[in-house]
Amino acid sequence: MSTSIQKAIELILSADPELLNILSTTAKVCLTSSILALIIGVPLGILFGAERFPGRRVLLVLNRTLIGMPPVVCGLLFYMLFSGVGPFRHLKLLFTVKLMIIAQVVLITPIIIGVMETFVADTAPALRETTRGLGFGRMKEYRLLVNECLYSIFSAYLLSFARAIAEVGAVAMVGGAIAWKTNVMTTAIMMYTNRGSFTLGIALGLILLTLSLLVNVVLSLMQGRLSR
């Protein structure tokens, strides 16, 4: 056990080319999907939290359902849509990084919407009573509301990034874990462990854990700063 951890650390330090390729694919998939999810999710979440319109509650229930969706089900859905018998087969996206990103966007945007909606629904009424009392217009009201949301946006982003980088089901189904092409950290761990080769798996596991630690340290450091 301790010698395999030692070997794993050596592998990380030796900048093994396959390890680097897996890391860069992972970074590309997770950074792109989380940023797209942020761009879509933040405005929708703020809208759901701040406004009351017919159908809002139904959409929120749907969103909560999507938050709870197992990644592998999301993967299955996209697999069926883009595989040789699916309606979108001519796009030839199955087993590409692009489709992995799309599947992850569908998986994590609901998290961002959920976090933003909860925060805004809590904050908007009191803020609005004050801004309307001052005679501010809608634009100014929204500017001030978004300004209140800074920490929520930040923590929603990190939460969705963490989910993206940790999930296996969706990226394995639609990406196929092809070495040097669509293999990311989690799928690589599965693949190498299945082959009985633990070293790369442990190295990737260590990196994932360190990343998760880092994300949480940054979150707790920013909490004080951004909610002031």
């Binding site: 009191a126 009573e129 004050t130 009392g133 001052l134 005679g135 300004n147 209140e148 800074l150």
Partner: peptide, 22 residues
């Protein structure tokens, strides 16, 4: 009409900037 609610909301910025929003 200007209305000051019973419980006022401080915006996430300095005291001075809060006042200068109006």
């Amino acid at each position: 009409v200007g209305y000051l609610p019973q419980k006022s909301f401080p915006f996430r910025m300095t005291t001075e900037k809060n006042i200068l929003t109006n």
